[in-house]
């Protein structure tokens, strides 16, 4: 139940962020932002409905809690995160080269800072985790 409660709180915050985006988009007449807000809110509400259904069914609740603590699924999620991080950094580096070639050096600099920050976070967390384990 503790895991489910945390997920409910998280998706409530996501729904709230979606509503804020929707309202911000509407007030600024930006259909993209309001559309994005609607999408985020809809997904968050769908997840919340799913969680409430799980909370009412003990069998589903047990299955959900096992899935959340499941070591194989955690390993899959970690591997997926590693791959996503690697792909993001490679895409950023390719983007920097492309932006420089297009003469958009200011944007390239921003992307380079983001890539550098990501690498820095990686190094700090690697150092911290190597001390911890």
């Amino acid at each position: 139940m503790k895991v489910l409660r945390k997920r409910v709180i998280w998706f409530m915050l996501v729904a709230l962020a979606g509503i804020i985006l929707f309202l911000a988009g509407r007030s600024g007449s930006d259909s993209f932002v309001s559309g994005l807000g609607t999408g985020i809110t809809a997904v968050a509400l769908a997840k919340l409905l799913q969680f409430f259904r799980i909370a009412r069914n003990p069998k589903l609740l047990k299955k959900f809690e096992i899935e959340q603590k499941e070591e194989r699924l955690i390993m899959i999620a970690e591997k997926s995160s590693r791959f996503t991080f690697l792909l993001t950094v490679v895409a950023e580096l390719a983007g920097i080269v492309a932006l420089i070639l297009l003469g958009r050096t200011a944007v390239a600099t921003v992307v380079a800072y983001v890539a550098a920050l990501q690498s820095l976070v990686y190094l700090i967390s690697y150092y911290y985790l190597s001390k911890k384990y």
Binding site: E70, E71, R72
Partner: peptide, 22 residues
């Protein structure tokens, strides 16, 4: 064992090695 059926299947097929705890 409080794991999913898919984990049992992966273990049996040798696709996944369990943690020492499992």
């Amino acid at each position: 064992l409080e794991v999913s059926r898919q984990t049992i299947s992966s273990l049996e097929k040798g696709r996944y090695n369990p943690s020492i705890i499992l």
